[in-house]
Design a protein around this nucleic acid. Sequence first.
DNA 1: TTGGGTTGTGCACACGTGTGAATAATGCAA
DNA 2: TTGCATTATTCACACGTGTGCACAACCCAA
Lengths: 332, 332
Amino acid sequence: MQREGKKVRSFEVAELAQISRSTVSRALAGDPRISKATRERVLAAAAELGYQPNLIARGLKNSTTGIIGVVVTDLNNPYHAHALQLLIEKMGLKHLAPLVFVGNTAEGAEHAIERLMSYQVDAVIALAAPFLEHVIEACLTRSKPLVLMNRYDGSEPVSAVGGDGGAAGRLVADHLVSCRARRFAFFAGEDRTGISWEREQGFSERLKELGHAIDVTISAPYTYRAAVVAAHEMLREEPDAVFCANDTLAIALMDAARSTGGQMPLIVGYDNSTFAQWPIYDLTSVDQNLDEMTTRTVEIAIAIAREPKRAPDRQMIQPSLVVRGSTSRTIK
Amino acid sequence: MQREGKKVRSFEVAELAQISRSTVSRALAGDPRISKATRERVLAAAAELGYQPNLIARGLKNSTTGIIGVVVTDLNNPYHAHALQLLIEKMGLKHLAPLVFVGNTAEGAEHAIERLMSYQVDAVIALAAPFLEHVIEACLTRSKPLVLMNRYDGSEPVSAVGGDGGAAGRLVADHLVSCRARRFAFFAGEDRTGISWEREQGFSERLKELGHAIDVTISAPYTYRAAVVAAHEMLREEPDAVFCANDTLAIALMDAARSTGGQMPLIVGYDNSTFAQWPIYDLTSVDQNLDEMTTRTVEIAIAIAREPKRAPDRQMIQPSLVVRGSTSRTIK
DNA sequence: TTGGGTTGTGCACACGTGTGAATAATGCAA
DNA sequence: TTGCATTATTCACACGTGTGCACAACCCAA
């Protein structure tokens, strides 16, 4: 094992194994033309010197770096943080490295994206970026593979993986009706046309099929503070059951209900975040199945990077409902 | 602006400006030997073609990539997520790119670190990694610059930036005494010898100076569930004021106190996380000044990378106390 | 010995960039 | 014109790797 010394290059390995540098490269790549004997000699030498190939040089030669650019908005949002973590893990399994770029940057978005591209990333994964249009344009211009995760607005010809918000809405409708709720509300997010809208649609449709309807709809930004204000407004309408577009909204609603001391409606959140499991909340919530979603996202990114002419791929991940205490009562 | 075309190399720029490739390189680097006139011609040509230098090639040539490896444990911990976000932003300002590697990997830590090194990162920043010894050893072996953030155990000759837990403990002691508390408790974290211990020491020392002492100490792992259990034990001791090693512990304690309906002690947390600001908690908490901490961390990383023989640098960031409702009552 | 197949290795180039040394261009004095 | 100093530009190499092609070694048949 090398200590304190300079970088070990493939040349040193070749020297030690008394063989040419090309043979070292082929042996390590598993080229069948190399004989068993020499391959083992090479592997032994490489192990002895602690040789690790210089991936920058390899990237230059192969023009494929194994680096994936990941664009994310705000890591203070635990949902995004969790998604990023899973993404990085999945990428690790595929021997890819994430070059992460966070949206809230002082550097200026376009400038930062340029820099991302300069690193010759094999693909870009965008995870709910607010300046999404910049990312999309930058990738299309350079015809760089791009996968949107959980933020497909339908307009651009790019690959995307998302949760099936409509299906989730229907699941929730079924569940709440089975709890014998009668007066239903939807606590919408800021972006009434985006993901929040899909969820509302599925919820509304399924309720209609079951002979009910959404009686109240109120929307709020996705921040806790703003949500608390809207939550009080919501509570004045005295719904039996509220489907919230987000766990943050749901928690704000629970806190608001507690502080007023009135009757707490059945509450369902979305994202199944960490605090949904906390005993004080014990919140029934839609699980987006982030594990599968991230796996598919990485798979698609790899596929496009390998075969750039491939048509954009769009996948819907089926969500599931995690039932907890916040909907365990039945309305009498 | 290029569209759909192949990559633009410096060669194309040279061709368009009717000049040699070397001159392009120097002009863009601001070499004073290049005349004003040609420099501007080059800049115009580069802008017209949308030229962005290939940082992989540059990295190979200069053997400095501008990539910093960032090792982090668990992004589900909002504190770590926030720290990572700030780190990435600061790095962006310095034109550095973060190659992120998350601890909870299925790939195996050592293997992942090897891969990180293979990308020729200029330095490594480790943010509370559980397999820290692997990271340290890997960096020392290759004499790769390493900065530990918020996790220095004192044993190894590496640079580190951390919060001054002792000073924080003293701040808290002053504050709680000024609230006229008499029976003090410390809610410790799992790692009694690490950062939790520093905080406890400062707290204890200052209390002694003021004629008091820590009457109760109970420790728990840093997870909400485990903390709730320990919190009930803590409450049976009926302390006036509790200093918690962590916001998670503090919140678990508040929830536990609420669920039993007994008297709520004064509570101080640590990290000033998002939920400390939530109205239901409104938690007084120590702010580690992560903004400054991350700035310094990046600065040190750059300094060491530039000058590898430099002695390890260790800095303490002074924390501050954010007073909120959880300590606004005064004990009568 | 010659010829042809099979197998294993080495030479030399390319990826795109930065940079030291060499060279051309210009000015100025003799 | 020549000689010398200064300035602007180009040449050619290096960074560490992968790979097409040529080539050596070997066996076997004629």
